[in-house]
Amino acid sequence: MARPIKHPKPRLDLEAEALTALEKARALPHGPERTEAMKRAGILRNAADMHGLLFAKRGTPLKT
């Protein structure tokens, strides 16, 4: 069973956080630290994308 989300972040906050993490990861030199930072940025991006699916209202068009 899925764990309930106590305080979901707004989608725009997640997108901004993902972009910031990606910019910081790209600035790092190649190596394990950069790899982990890129993974974290990808996870945040996926969370932002899923947020739109999980909290969508039925019958309303998607916001772009």
Results as ranks from 00 to 15, higher is better:
Leu22Gly: 05
Leu44Asn: 01
His51Phe: 05
Thr60Gln: 06
Arg11Met: 04
Lys9Cys: 03
Thr60Lys: 07
Ala27Lys: 12
Pro61Ile: 02
His7Phe: 03
His51Arg: 14
Leu62Gly: 05
Arg34Val: 02
Asp49Gln: 11
Gly42Pro: 00
Arg58Gly: 08
Lys6Leu: 10
Ala56Gly: 05
Ala37Leu: 03
Ala56Gln: 11
Glu17Met: 13
Pro8Asp: 00
Phe55Ile: 01
Leu53Gln: 10
Leu53Thr: 09
Ala56Asn: 04
Lys63Tyr: 07
Met50Gly: 00
Thr60Ser: 07
Arg11Gln: 12
Met38Phe: 07
Asp49Arg: 10
Lys9Phe: 03
Asp49Ser: 10
Ile43Gln: 14
Leu54Arg: 11
Glu36Ser: 13
Arg45Glu: 03
Leu28Arg: 05
Leu62Lys: 15
Lys63Leu: 14
Gly31Asn: 10
Leu62Ser: 12
His30Met: 10
Leu14Thr: 00
Ala2Gly: 02
Gly52Leu: 07
Pro10Asp: 13
Arg34Thr: 04
Arg34Lys: 15
Arg34Tyr: 05
Arg11Ala: 07
Pro8Glu: 01
Ala48Phe: 03
Ala41Ile: 06
Gly59Met: 03
Leu53His: 10
Pro29Thr: 08
Phe55Thr: 01
Asn46Trp: 06
Leu62Val: 07
Glu17Ser: 15
Pro61Lys: 10
Ala27Thr: 09
Ile5Cys: 14
Gly59Thr: 07
Pro61Arg: 09
Pro61Gln: 06
